[in-house]
């Protein structure tokens, strides 16, 4: 669907495990790896990346759902609409006129939306891009029949387990870690940078309290709009928060 194809590359990036993967499952359609035509039939597990951005994609995802036993959507685009969902906050016609010479050739929906907005999904694997170990875990879980061991927690938990010194507390930076779904292993805080929220809001994301705290220590409302409106800015909790701080 609409994406940069980067999440598919994560699968190719599993160099060491690719052989074992090939033994454990029969990969029948993988556009980034092979140009073989999509076979007809039914599939045990379908991984889909990208958001629903055009009428054709909407049609296609319904078909994919119908022929897949398990549908796992991967990446920020597929789970929240992705960075291209920034257009949801603006006039999309106007964007098209600015970007394309002949906008009438482009067929595009007004909003870029996650797959789950259109069809039921079995699992949403977050991230921009997704984490390779987590992807293997989702595939393993489906092969052996366990619940994917993807913890439903804040980035802070990974940050603390890793022994990172909190950048909010010790460096006074804004960090979306407390309201963001874990999965990256607290990559940015480990490099002394606040979390950008690539994995999207976690359950119970108390974005309001985080914003109040940041405003209380001198950040501006514009800073809050920027912080919450980035890679997963169209995910409901983040969208709601950024809108609260719009001028």
């Amino acid at each position: 669907m609409a994406s940069c194809d980067g999440c598919q590359l994560t699968l190719l990036d599993c160099e060491d495990e690719l052989l074992a993967l090939g033994e454990a499952v029969d990969i029948v359609h993988f556009p980034e790896a092979s140009s073989a035509l999509r076979p007809q039939g039914r599939f045990d597990l379908t991984l889909v990346e990208g958001s629903i951005s055009t009428p054709e994609q909407l049609e296609e995802i319904r078909h994919i759902r119908a022929v897949s036993h398990a549908l796992v959507v991967i990446g920020a685009c597929a789970t929240s609409g992705g960075v291209q969902a920034l257009r949801n906050f603006a006039d999309h016609e106007q964007f098209m006129r600015v970007v394309y010479a002949t906008p009438s050739y482009v067929s595009s929906l007004a909003d870029s939306t996650p797959i789950s907005a259109h069809v039921p999904v079995d699992f949403e694997l977050r991230g921009c891009p997704i984490d390779k170990a987590q992807l293997l875990e989702v595939i393993t879980a489906s092969v052996v029949g366990r619940k994917p061991g993807i913890p439903n927690e804040a980035v802070c938990m990974e940050c603390k387990r890793r022994g990172v010194v909190c950048v909010m507390v010790a460096r006074g930076q804004t960090c979306l870690g407390p309201v963001t779904h874990a999965g990256c292993g607290a990559l940015c805080p480990a490099y002394d940078r606040g979390c950008y929220g690539c994995f999207g809001p976690r359950e119970s994301a108390n974005t309001g309290s985080l914003a109040t705290w940041e405003l209380g220590r001198g950040r501006s409302k514009a800073d809050m709009v920027r912080a919450f409106r980035l890679i997963t800015g169209a995910a409901p909790a983040f969208e709601h928060e950024s809108k609260r701080h719009e001028p």
Partner: peptide, 13 residues
């Protein structure tokens, strides 16, 4: 609970 982020940092430290 309006202020708490349920981030778990308190329990981890």
């Amino acid at each position: 609970a309006e202020r708490c982020l349920a981030c778990g940092n308190c329990t981890q430290v």
